[in-house]
Structures are given as structure tokens and as C-alpha cells.
Amino acid sequence: MASLISDIEPPTHLDPSSTDLLRKKKRPSVSSGASARRHAASGDSESHARWRSEKQQRIYSAKLIQALQQVRHSSSSAATSSPTAQKRGKAVREAADRVLAVSARGRTRWSRAILANRIKLKFRKQKRPRPTAIPAMTTVITTGSSGRSRKRRVSVVRLNKKSLPAVTGKVRVLGRLVPGCGKESVPVILEEATDYIQALEMQVRAMKSLAELLSGSGSGSAPPPI
């Protein structure tokens, strides 16, 4: 599959958007990021393990805290009336997702989609033309074609001709839930969803423990508002 070659390309597309994020916070580990990406290309079981690792969660938490502080500063420095709680929750959510996408280092379509959304907003503000879309032909079917050994037990019922339309319909619904996968092919959606779920699980774990940390130390000295 020639499309595998373009696997190496995507990170460059991120550069305009994420440099300011990456440069400030991620300088030291850029080289390790490149090697991690290469690993991920060779076998995604490693990348899946990555989301499960404690180290990854720590990195994510640290980045999240930095992003949250920016959210706080920007909302408190705004001269306008203080933003509603709903708005701030949304800002936190956006920051959390953006940081998650940065943590994925552009290996996956869903993360590129999250970051691309961000660029679109930026460019719209500056009234410049939007960047060209991220190439559509990346990492197609890395599973099948990379010939990874199928050591996992097959625990799914074989498909028959009748069930196939229903299954593809469900995959389409799934594609709408994974960022950037609304128009992707079935194998891409399944692959991306596999990675995205694990990233989300890590995000939830990290945000939970951060919330616990904050509420634990917050209740000690300062009474909660209201």
C-alpha cells in the first residue's frame, strides 16, 4: 500500500498550528516523540499501550494544567463581564481536547481533526485562507496491510451478507462520534475509534485525578465559592 508512506507526513501539517503549543511546553521531548511515532507506525499495539501508561497520563495532566491556567488567565483578563460557568466549562473542555490531540502527536486522524478545527478558527479570525485539508489518504488500513499477526482471539461472529449493511450503518454512526472520521472508510473509522477510545479513557482518568487534587487542596484553605 503506497498510502502507508504518507504516514510519516502528517506531523508537518500540524506545525503551523501546534508550534506555539509545542515549542513552549514540549521542546525537550520532541525527538522522543518522533521515535514514538515511528513505533506507532510499525505496530499500533504499542501506541495503544501508550495511552494506558502512567507516564502518558502524567504528561497529559501536566499539559492540561498549563492549558487550564491559560483558560483561567484569558477568562479573567477579559474586560467583559465574567464568562458564564457554562462557557468556561466549554473552554475547559476545548483545552482538554486540544491537549489530548497534542498528546497524540498527530499520529491519528482524530487528533489532527481536533487540531485542524483549531487552526480553522484561528485563520478565520485573521481572515486568511484556510489551510488545505489534511491529506485524506493517510494511514488507510494499517491493520490489514501491515500484516500484523492476528494473534488475538477472534471473538466476533462472522459476518454474513445480510448483516453487512446494518454493520456499515453502525460504523457510519461511529464515524460521526470520532473527530475527523465522519467521511472516512470503514477500516479507518474502526482503527481510529480503537485509538480514540483509549485516549478518551486516559483523558477521563487524568481529569478525574486532577479534579480530586484540586478539590482536596482547595477545601483545605479556601472555602468553595457559594
Binding site: 483558560v71 483561567r72 477521563v204 484540586l214
Partner: peptide
Amino acid sequence: LSDRLSQLLD
């Protein structure tokens, strides 16, 4: 969690 964190940030 985002809502909760934004409250905690306050």
C-alpha cells in the same frame, strides 16, 4: 469533568 474543573479553577 470539564464543568467540575472550571468550578474548581474558580
